[in-house]
Amino acid sequence: MSSLDDSLKKITILQILVVLLALIGLVILFDIFGYSISEDWVYVGVILYFIYRLRFFSSEFKQDLINIFAKITPKSLFTIVIVNVFFSYGMLYLSIFALDHIPGFRSLIFAPIFSILAITSLAGIGGLISTVFVSPICEELLFRGVFLNRLKLIVPTSFAIIISSILFGALHSYGNIISAFVFGVCMCIIYLKTKNILTCILAHFINNLLAELFVHIDSGNLIFTNDIFIVLFSILAIVSLYLIIISLRQEWKYIDKR
């Protein structure tokens, strides 16, 4: 087991909550005095805290970096990311369909309480750097590195995976919550298999990069307006969901043994 992993397990949820509240408080304070600061800096602040606590860029970090693919192949990692990307598009299609065809659903989803729960602004989805780099580092360290590890101490591993993934999903906006939950479960399993948080961060990097590429390449919004693309991505989403279910069924047999 790596020293980086050992150090992660020493960080408590209470410590993280204190850091988060302090950083959010600073953002609010600056806003009160008329200085608008992006919530992205909350994520940056959390990462700086982890750098301090984990001795990032030390020999232990370098060893984990070298061993990213020690217990999982690049092909397996990339496959997991791809199926999750296509599944997420399937969920987006369903969410848009629900908004357009279920009476009263739009007003329910966009009620104030749901707006509070979906704190996507913290992830800085407006910027490429924040989305592809800052968000994956912070979220993996938080939800897999701390929440999963600490929850495992008080509940069975299966429940720890589900709870941490629900929290991870709740951080995302409507249309992405379910797919984020599933992605979180996959990242939990990868972390449990590899004991290397850098492997999860890399997978998250690739996932967010692919999502951003789709957005920028599809300038005409064909994925959501062209019938051929909608059918194609829907089929890929169904196949991806099938592959995810099969994979999770196989892995779940060994989860509580880890």
Rank of each mutant, 00 (worst) to 15 (best):
S2I: 04
L4N: 04
D5K: 11
K10S: 11
I11P: 00
T12R: 10
L17P: 02
L17E: 09
V18F: 14
L21T: 11
A22H: 04
L23E: 03
I24L: 14
F30C: 13
F30A: 14
D31V: 05
Y35I: 15
S36G: 08
D40I: 13
V42A: 00
Y43T: 13
G45M: 07
V46L: 15
L48R: 06
R55I: 09
F61H: 12
K62G: 07
Q63P: 02
I66G: 02
F69E: 00
F69K: 00
F69A: 03
K71G: 04
S76Q: 15
F78Y: 10
V81P: 01
V85L: 05
V85G: 00
V85A: 02
F87M: 05
S88L: 06
Y89V: 06
G90R: 00
F97R: 10
L99T: 04
S107K: 12
S107L: 09
L108K: 09
F114R: 09
F114I: 07
I119T: 11
T120S: 13
L122P: 00
G124P: 06
G127L: 13
L128H: 09
I129F: 15
T131Y: 01
V132F: 05
F133R: 07
I137G: 04
C138M: 14
E139R: 04
E139W: 04
E139K: 04
L142R: 06
G145C: 09
V146H: 03
N149E: 15
N149S: 15
R150D: 13
S158N: 14
S158A: 12
I162K: 01
S164V: 04
F168C: 02
L171W: 10
H172Y: 07
S173G: 14
I177A: 02
I177F: 07
S179Q: 08
A180C: 08
F181V: 03
F183K: 01
G184L: 03
C186W: 01
C188K: 02
I189T: 01
I190K: 03
Y191G: 08
L192P: 00
K193E: 07
T194R: 05
K195H: 14
I197F: 05
L198D: 07
C200P: 01
I201L: 06
L202H: 09
H204Q: 09
F205G: 01
F205S: 00
N207D: 11
N208L: 03
L209F: 13
E212D: 13
E212H: 10
I217N: 06
S219E: 10
N221Q: 13
L222I: 08
D227N: 11
I230N: 02
L232K: 01
I235E: 06
I235N: 06
L236A: 12
L243K: 12
I245H: 05
S247Y: 14
L248Q: 12
L248T: 07
E251V: 05
W252F: 11
Y254Q: 10
R258G: 10
